[in-house]
Amino acid sequence: MSKQQGWDEFEIGAMLRSFDGKIDECPAFTPQRDRNYSQNSSHVASVADWRLIKPVYNKDYCIDCQFCWVYCPDVSIISRDKKMIGIDMDHCKGCGVCVEVCPTNPKSLLMFPEQADEETEIASWPTKDEKEE
């Protein structure tokens, strides 16, 4: 939506639509990837620039417990068919909750500086921390 838009160019009322066109069934039955989001859904926006540190996901240690999915405040853990498959980096603000709730040892998610290279960090992933309970 253009910042240049004039007063006569939007719909009346302080309202926004989530989707373009009509949706045939309750969106609870439609995965996000199959939805026809409107330009007014925050789904199409990005808050990536909020992030100072970022989570890196190492699937080698992941047990698909879905703790990261349920506790992510930013709807940024992408799960499909009960499997964790990655992080939505447009919506992740880098809070680090996913790392804290990850129960594996070593963790399957760790925080790194925003500019860190994912492949390099995965290659040098820490080993099992014996001191952890």
Binding site: F29, T30, P31, S42, H43, V47, K82
Partner: peptide, 12 residues
């Protein structure tokens, strides 16, 4: 639970 299709969107 993780098969739920979220109806609350990121970039809030």
């Amino acid at each position: 639970f993780s098969t739920s299709a979220d109806r609350f969107e990121g970039a809030h």
